[in-house]
Simulated assay, not measured.
Amino acid sequence: MSGITEEQQGQDDLAYNVFAKACPSRGTLEHVTGRWGGLTLGALYEGSLRFNELRRRVDGVSEKMLSQTLHALERDGLVHREAQPTNPPRVDYELTPLGRRVAERLLALIHCVEGSMDDVLAARVRYDGTRGGL
């Protein structure tokens, strides 16, 4: 007997259950799957990018949102920020090994969605035709 009660064991099992309200993995999932997090991870999968290169690659993201997204992903250990001691300063962003693993799975989802868009668009037309659109 390990001295752990059944209740404690049950809590341990739920420690990283994203469906549990208090689970810390929920915040990371939000960072990864949020509007800009997924696109940022996908863009960085191609290689290291400077801030403005990344901003151009992730079309539509504001400087403020990209900065907040990068901070969150860096805090979660998915992105590495490297400041070069040059004048002017140069800052590069790249995925960590964990970030690459997450981005690979995310890119599979992105490719699935992109490859299914004809079906999605047809479904929207059918739906809108029966319900009067949005």
Results as ranks from 00 to 15, higher is better:
Ile4Thr: 11
Gly133His: 15
Thr69Asn: 06
Ser25Thr: 13
Asn52Cys: 01
Trp36Gln: 04
Gly10Pro: 02
Gly129Pro: 02
Ala83Pro: 00
Glu30Ala: 08
Met1Gly: 13
Leu98Ser: 15
Met65Asp: 01
Gly3Ser: 08
Arg81Asp: 00
Val79Asn: 12
Asp12Ala: 14
Tyr127Pro: 00
Asp118Met: 11
Leu121Asp: 15
Gly47Ala: 11
Gln68Met: 08
Leu78Gln: 04
Asp13Gln: 09
Gln68Thr: 02
Arg55Lys: 15
Thr33Gln: 11
Leu54Gly: 07
Gly60Val: 02
Arg81Phe: 00
Gly27Tyr: 10
Glu7Arg: 14
Asp12Leu: 10
Gly47Asn: 10
Glu7Ser: 13
Val91Gly: 00
Glu46Asp: 12
His31Thr: 00
Ser116Tyr: 09
Thr96Asp: 09
Arg26Cys: 07
Leu14Ile: 00
Ser116Arg: 11
Thr33Ala: 10
Asp92Gln: 08
Gly42Asn: 13
Val79Gly: 05
Pro24Gly: 10
His80Thr: 05
Leu106Met: 13
Gln68Phe: 01
Pro85Thr: 02
Gly77Asn: 10
Lys64Phe: 04
Leu14Phe: 00
Glu114Asn: 09
Arg55Glu: 06
Gly3Gln: 11
Phe51Glu: 08
Leu66Trp: 01
Arg90Ser: 08
Val125Lys: 15
Gly37Ala: 03
Asp59Glu: 15
Pro24Met: 13
Gly60Met: 04
Ala72Ser: 14
Arg100Gly: 01
Tyr127Asn: 11
Lys21Gly: 09
Arg105Lys: 14
Ser48Cys: 07
Glu30Trp: 06
Met65Gln: 07
Ala122Arg: 10
Glu46Ser: 14
Arg124Cys: 07
Leu95Gln: 04
Val125Ile: 03
Val120Glu: 05
Trp36Thr: 00
Val58Gln: 01
Gln9Leu: 15
Pro88Tyr: 07
Gly27Val: 06
Arg81Trp: 01
Ala72Met: 03
Glu7Tyr: 14
Asn87Glu: 09
Glu7Asp: 08
Lys64Ala: 12
Glu104Tyr: 09
Ala72Arg: 04
Leu14Met: 09
Pro88Thr: 09
Ala20Trp: 06
Thr69Ser: 05
Gly3Met: 13
Leu66His: 01
Leu134Glu: 14
Arg75Tyr: 07
Gly27Glu: 10
Arg131Leu: 12
Gly37His: 08
Leu73Asn: 05
Leu44Asn: 13
Gly47Phe: 11
Leu66Glu: 03
Leu107Ile: 14
Asp128Trp: 13
His111Leu: 08
Thr130Asp: 10
Val61Asn: 02
Ser116Thr: 10
Gly42Val: 03
Glu94His: 13
Ala72Glu: 07
Thr69Gly: 05
Gly77Leu: 13
